[in-house]
């Protein structure tokens, strides 16, 4: 049932990429436990606007857990303490009355802060641009049923493909590594016959781009998998390692 709680929010405020940031504390009363975390943020922003203060900038869009736009490191977890969801799916019932909630932006050298809780995840786009695709042009492709694909293979590729590119993996990783993100794409396309043709090249260029952009080295802590809102498995990282190493040894 709906309850009304009061919370204290410790929010990271930073005017711009080069500005130095600090925590600001806000008290927010009468929050419905039925409202989502972002709706609570909306209420806080409305309050700030009412006080003629600048509202808090944060990324969000679809608010149903699929676009991957929302970020925020809440009480020590990317996307908050509840499992298997994004910040926009987090509800205030996950918090207690009187609780202090600390909200920080993703922290990773490759994800510079743009403003307040907003970071740039352009690095992920750059990695995909380097090779996260199958090189086919529009038209002139064979029939969709021309190549049969085993259901288990298709399902495993789908599991990898559910990645929403939110960056929680890199944000959770103590090494700032983007391996789970890269692995999800490499693994998806390496599993499918359509992507297998250039799998070796793809693994090499995507890893090279990932390293170039300043992401860290994976040390298999598994924090990425534990915090991934879509439960992408680190077994895909093993496949990426395999693809990459066999590509390099073949060279």
């Amino acid at each position: 049932m709906e309850k009304i709680i009061n919370v204290t929010l410790k929010v990271w405020r930073q005017a711009g990429p080069k500005a130095s940031g600090k925590f600001e504390t806000y008290k927010l009363d009468n929050v419905s436990t039925d409202s989502s975390f972002l709706e609570m943020m909306d209420v806080l922003n409305e309050k700030l606007i009412g006080e003629r203060k600048e509202p808090i900038a944060f990324d969000h869009d679809c608010r149903e857990g699929i676009c991957g736009m929302c970020s925020m490191f809440i009480n020590g977890h990317p996307h908050g303490p509840d499992g298997e969801i994004t910040t926009c799916q987090l509800h205030m019932r996950a918090f207690k009355d009187g609780e202090t909630i600390t909200i920080e932006p993703w922290r990773s050298a490759a994800f510079p802060v743009i403003k307040d809780l907003m970071v740039s995840r352009g690095a992920f786009d750059e990695i995909i641009q380097a090779g996260g695709f199958v090189s086919v042009n529009t038209g002139g492709v064979p029939d969709g049923n021309a190549i049969a694909i085993g259901k288990d293979i298709a399902d495993e590729a789908m599991d990898a493909a559910t990645c929403i590119g939110c960056g929680a993996c890199a944000a959770a990783c103590k090494n700032g590594s983007a391996m789970l993100f890269v692995a999800a794409k490499v693994s998806q396309l390496a599993l499918l016959p359509q992507g297998k043709v250039e799998a070796a090249h793809r693994a090499k260029v995507m890893v090279a781009k990932m390293d170039e952009l300043g992401f860290g080295n994976c040390t298999n802590t598994g924090a990425c998998e534990a915090e991934c809102p879509k439960n992408v498995s680190i077994s895909h990282i093993a496949r990426l390692n395999r693809e990459f190493l066999s590509a390099k040894f073949r060279d």
Binding site: F133, V134, V136, T138, G139, V141, P142, D143, G144, N145, A148, I149, G150, K151, A154, D155, A157, M158, A161, Q188, L189, L192, Q194, G195
Partner: peptide, 23 residues
């Protein structure tokens, strides 16, 4: 419409498949 499905399959879109491997 049918060309769209072919195009997406070629791009590596993991559509649901039956046990026989077809869409």
């Amino acid at each position: 419409s049918s060309g769209i499905i072919d195009q997406c399959v070629a791009q590596g879109v993991p559509f649901a498949r039956e046990y026989g491997g077809l869409l």
